[in-house]
Computed example of a mutant assay.
Amino acid sequence: MYARAAIGLVPGFNRPGWLPDAVLERTGVTVDRTHLAEYNRVCGFRLSDTLPATYPHVLAFRLAFRLMSRRDFPFPVVGLIHVANRIELHRPIDAGEALDLSVHAADLREHPRGRQLDIVATAAVDGEVVWRDVSTYLRREGRAQGGRRESDQAEPPAASARWRLSPRVGTDYARVSGDHNPIHTSRLGARLFGFPRPIAHGMWSKARCLAALEGRLPEAYTVDVSFKLPVLLPSTVAFAAAPDWTFALHSAKSGKPHLAGTVTGWSGDPGLAAQ
């Protein structure tokens, strides 16, 4: 898939200035329990017949990638930066339930560093939406205007745990997610995009943080994260969780931020999270 997507980087490849209206769907998607167990192992979740809130994201990944690889998508998918993710879990999802998946693009907008857009995915059971995921991507265009640099951020919160991450974090998550972007799996691929060595997937970082909160999360909730500086592999990161249901991931050595997240309760109304 990435080989086909790379064609879009060729100069002269014409693209529209708007998002496609396409909605891509897969119906009756069932969970392979062996794959679920492997995903749980890679991300740190306990073995369970209930899906982690991040698991439907990997089920919808191929649809999302196919959408972003289309000729009528405004940017080449290779080079887009995943800057934020919001997941709304409306209720627990059992591994035995068949899911109807849907993916579309929305809200192309200006950003100080370029332009942003959302890829919206949903999972439904018997017509009821039980999960919704919004991934925000940035297309860098020109130089940033103003704003505070990451190095100017406040001191990181006190660590609740430290995790030593090996290069296998990138290759193992690529295997279970289907996201084989070479910036996560190859030193050469990472260098081609300006990184000294491979970086962890943002959705692995989010999943690993939620796994650290497992057992304390409500049955239905919304979890928002912003992805900050990339996690280079290998490295040691520090996880911090606060009583107000905020959490963060930062470098154990430098304190530089990698991820900031918030968990809020679910109101029960589709598309609305309790504040």
Rank of each mutant, 00 (worst) to 15 (best):
M1G: 07
M1W: 05
M1Q: 04
A3F: 15
R15D: 14
W18G: 04
W18P: 00
P20S: 13
P20Q: 11
V23D: 07
E25M: 06
R26M: 10
R26F: 12
G28A: 08
D32P: 01
H35W: 12
C43G: 11
C43M: 09
C43Q: 09
F45A: 00
F45M: 00
S48P: 03
D49N: 14
L51P: 01
Y55K: 02
Y55R: 02
P56L: 08
V58A: 08
L59V: 13
R62L: 11
F65E: 09
D72I: 01
F73I: 03
F73M: 11
P74Q: 13
P76H: 08
V77T: 08
G79V: 01
A84G: 04
N85I: 00
E88H: 15
L89M: 08
L89R: 03
P92A: 12
S102A: 09
L108H: 06
R109D: 10
D118K: 05
V120S: 07
A123Q: 03
A124M: 03
A124Q: 03
E128F: 04
V134A: 09
S135K: 09
Y137K: 02
R143H: 15
G146S: 02
G147P: 10
R149Y: 15
Q153N: 15
P157D: 10
A158L: 14
A158H: 14
S160G: 07
R162L: 14
W163F: 11
T171L: 07
A174D: 08
R175G: 13
S186A: 03
A190C: 03
A190W: 06
G194R: 01
G194Q: 06
H201N: 05
G202E: 04
G202S: 02
W204A: 03
S205C: 12
K206T: 01
A207P: 00
L210G: 05
A211P: 00
A211M: 02
G215D: 12
G215H: 13
G215I: 14
E219Y: 04
D224H: 12
L229T: 06
V231L: 12
T236F: 01
A240I: 04
P243F: 11
T246S: 09
L259G: 13
S267C: 02
P270I: 02
